[in-house]
Computed example of a mutant assay.
Amino acid sequence: MSTNSLNVALAMPASTARTVFPPTSLDPLERSLNLLSHDPIEDFHSPEGRAVLVEADVLITGWGCPMIDDAVLDAAPRLRYVLHAAGTVKHHIGDACWERGIQISSAADANAIPVAEYTVAMIVLANKKVLQIAQALHSTRTAVPAEQLFPDMGNYRKRVGIIGASKIGRHVIRLLAGYELEVVVADPYLSASEASALGVGLLSLDELVASSDVVSLHAPSLPSTKNLIDAGLIERMRPGATFINTSRGELVDQEALLARVEKGDLYAILDVTTPWVLPAESRFYSHPNVLLTPHVAGSLGTELERMAASAVQEALRLSRGVPLAYQLKAEDLAITA
């Protein structure tokens, strides 16, 4: 089969397609491949879905794509590639895809960029004590003696601890390279030589939380990482430190975190919690040491176009006979989100 004859189809809810793919974003596909339809497959088992699926060599998937299992693959005899225009593929790539040798790609690298940008912004603000000083200014409406309140404020030579040298964690490290900060990492899969190449120190998790001015969590959500940040680690965090979570709420013992925050000597910046929306009575909302944001670190608004472009570029590589840039392997799923 010639690569320039590849048939491409979208598979996701129509609302996702409208949100992620701007009107002209699919134009490059139509110039280099055969886009079967601008309307995405929403149901693989509908007559309309089956009619497109039987012709598809490539599926570009998005949030809400139905599970691709044996039954779907039986109805898609030509399918060879699934390109996901978002992060994790665990919700729609069934075991059958890996068993049948379907090549899988995702836009996780593209989605890592805004999460890392958010994280770096929060690290800088946390060390500068901007959020606490702003609260004091709003509440007193008078001059705030910032240095008297926070004599150690500032980013110069502060230690930032990164938990997890994931795609996001590594991008945070790259962005922090321009700051005069000491960056350390805890990750059981990171070797000393890899840490050296990244320009970071490699510490145990205990050492990292006990010595860092900011602790930022970037580990994947896996059965083995549930409550990774437990009560013991939370208690060992330095007085005055800031804990940032842009990963998943279930990695943290939230009750222990709240108890430590309420002691008054720990700050928390949480973009994710368990549940996604905390109950209205949660004390996280009202505590002055806590900044909550509603899962906005990842790709939103114009940033969605980056993920769409990533998937389109993967398809264009196939049209040129070039290997996928962001191909996933089945074994990757054991240690990634």
Rank of each mutant, 00 (worst) to 15 (best):
N4G: 14
N7W: 06
L10P: 10
M12R: 02
M12W: 07
A14M: 09
S15L: 10
R18V: 14
P23W: 05
L29I: 12
E30M: 04
L36D: 11
I41R: 02
I41C: 08
G49Y: 01
G49V: 00
V52P: 12
V52N: 08
L53D: 10
E55G: 07
E55R: 04
E55M: 11
G62F: 01
D70A: 06
G87D: 09
T88I: 07
K90Y: 03
A96G: 03
W98M: 10
E99Y: 04
S106V: 09
A110P: 12
I113C: 10
E117I: 09
T119I: 13
T119A: 14
V124Y: 04
L125A: 15
A134C: 10
A136Y: 10
L137H: 06
H138D: 14
H138L: 05
P145I: 02
L149K: 02
M153R: 05
M153C: 08
I162P: 15
G164Y: 13
S166N: 09
K167L: 12
I173F: 08
R174I: 09
R174K: 05
E180C: 01
L181M: 09
E182F: 00
V183C: 11
V185A: 00
D187C: 13
A192G: 14
E194G: 15
A195G: 13
L198W: 01
E207V: 07
L208F: 01
D213Y: 02
H218A: 10
H218C: 13
A219G: 08
S221A: 12
L222I: 12
P223C: 01
S224L: 02
I234A: 03
G240D: 11
E250Q: 03
L251A: 06
D253F: 04
Q254E: 12
A256K: 06
R260D: 05
G264H: 00
D265T: 04
D265P: 12
A268I: 04
D271A: 03
L278R: 00
A280L: 06
R283F: 08
V290D: 15
T293P: 15
P294A: 14
H295T: 09
H295V: 11
L300I: 05
L300W: 00
L300F: 04
E303Q: 15
E303K: 14
A308Q: 10
A309P: 13
S319K: 03
S319T: 07
R320T: 12
T336I: 14
A337E: 14
